[in-house]
Write a protein that binds this DNA or RNA. Structure first.
Lengths: 197, 197
DNA sequence: ACGCTAGTATACCGAACGGTATACAAATTG
DNA sequence: CAATTTGTATACCGTTCGGTATACTAGCGT
C-alpha cells in the first residue's frame, strides 16, 4: 500500500513552473517580476525561492524541463544511418511536432535564441542550445563520408538548417502555415538546394 | 562669421541615442535602466526626458532613426520592374549591406522581431516592420502577372523570404558567413526553390 | 537691456525590484 | 512520541525602477 499524492500532479513547484513559463513567453524574462509570478501561482516569494533559489534558477528549471523532452526526441531523430536527406527530414518533423505540441515554450525559446548576447535569457538558453547545435553538426560531419568534404562548413550548415526550421515554425505559430510532414519536406528540400548548388 | 558648434555633430540628444542603442542591443530593452543610459551618455534623467518623454519614446526614436534609412534603401530596391528574381536579389543585397553597416542596430532589431508579442519592444518594432512586410508582399503581388496565382500566399512568402535573409544575416553577424553579393544570390535561389517546387 | 525659450542639473517621488530573516505548521523519520 | 526535515507565510531588507517638480543658465530675438 502506498499513499496516492494528488498534489504531486500539480504541486506548488509545478504550478510555479507553469505560470512562469506563460508569463515569460508572453512578455519576456526581464519584464516579468518575481512577485507577479507568485501572485499568478497563488504562492508567496519564500516558496518560490525555496524551490528555485533565484529568478535565474527558475528560468533554468523551466528551460531544463522542456529542453530535456526535446533532447530525448532529437537524440532518436538525429541518429544518422547513412541517409542525410532522410535524417534531416526526421529532424525537421521532430522540431515541427515539438513546436506544435508546446507552442508557448517554443515562443519563449525563439525569443531567447535571438535575445541580446549579454542578456540573462540568452546565457541561460545558450547552454541548452549547444546540445542541439552539436547534434546537428554531428549529422553533417557523419555525412561527409557520403557527400564529400564540407570544407569545415558543418557549423554554418547546422545553423542555417535550424534557422530555416525556425523560420517555418515562426510562420506556423502565427497561423500562416501548417507544421505538417509536407512542410517539413519542403524545408529540407529548400535547405539542401541552397547547400549543394 | 559664424560659430562652429562642435557639439552639434554629437549633441546630447545624439549621444543619448547612440549609447542607448548600444546598451539595448547588448542586454535588451527591459534589462537596461534609464539611469544607466544617462550615466553612459554623461547626462541626467531630466535631460533624457526632455528629448524623448519616456523610455519607450527613446526606443521609438532609436528605431525611427535607423529604420528610416533602411526604408529609403528598400523603397528603391523593391521597385518591381517585371523581373522577380532580380528584384529579390536587389532586396537581399540591400538587407545584407545594411546589416553589415549597422550591425549593432540590426542585432537589436532581430531581438525585437522575435521578442514576446506583448513586450514593449515587440510593439515598438512591429509598427516599423509592417512597412517592410507590405513592401515585400507588394513585390509578390505585382509578380502574380508573371508567375500566376500565388493562392493568397504572398504574406507567407514575404515572411519566409525575410526569415531566410535574417537567418543568413544572423550567421554573418556571428562571423560564420560573409554577407556579400554571392551569399545574397544563394539565399534568393534557395528561397525560390522552396517556393516554386 | 529685456524677456523668452531651450537645455540642463539637483533633489526627490511612490512603486516595484530581487531577495531574505524569522517563525510556524505539517509531514516524515527515529 | 519526539526529533528532524520540508514547505509555507508574514514582514521586511536595501536598491533600483520610470518619472518629475523646481530652479538655474545660456543663447536668442527684439
Amino acid at each position: 500500500m502506498y499513499t496516492v499524492r494528488y498534489t504531486s500532479v500539480m504541486d506548488n513547484r509545478g504550478t510555479i513552473l507553469e505560470r512562469a513559463l506563460i508569463l515569460f513567453s508572453e512578455r519576456g524574462y526581464d519584464a516579468v517580476g518575481v512577485q507577479e509570478i507568485c501572485d499568478a501561482a497563488g504562492i508567496t516569494k519564500p516558496t518560490l525561492y525555496h524551490y528555485f533559489g533565484s529568478k535565474r534558477g527558475l528560468l533554468e528549471a523551466i528551460l531544463e524541463q522542456s529542453f530535456s523532452a526535446l533532447r530525448n526526441r532529437l537524440t532518436i531523430a538525429a541518429d544518422y544511418r547513412g541517409d542525410l536527406p532522410l535524417t534531416l527530414q526526421t529532424i525537421a518533423e521532430t522540431y515541427f511536432s515539438f513546436a506544435g505540441e508546446f507552442p508557448i515554450f517554443y515562443r519563449l525559446q525563439l525569443a531567447l535564441w535571438f535575445a541580446p548576447q549579454e542578456s540573462e535569457g540568452f546565457k541561460a538558453v545558450s547552454m541548452q542550445n549547444r546540445f542541439q547545435h552539436e547534434m546537428i553538426e554531428k549529422v553533417f560531419l557523419d555525412a561527409v563520408l557520403q557527400h564529400g568534404n564540407m570544407r569545415g562548413r558543418h557549423q554554418a550548415y547546422a545553423l542555417t538548417f535550424l534557422g530555416m526550421l525556425n523560420t517555418y515554425i515562426g510562420l506556423g505559430l502565427n497561423g500562416l502555415a501548417t507544421l505538417d510532414v509536407e512542410l517539413a519536406r519542403q524545408a529540407v528540400r529548400q535547405f539542401q538546394y541552397g547547400i549543394y548548388s
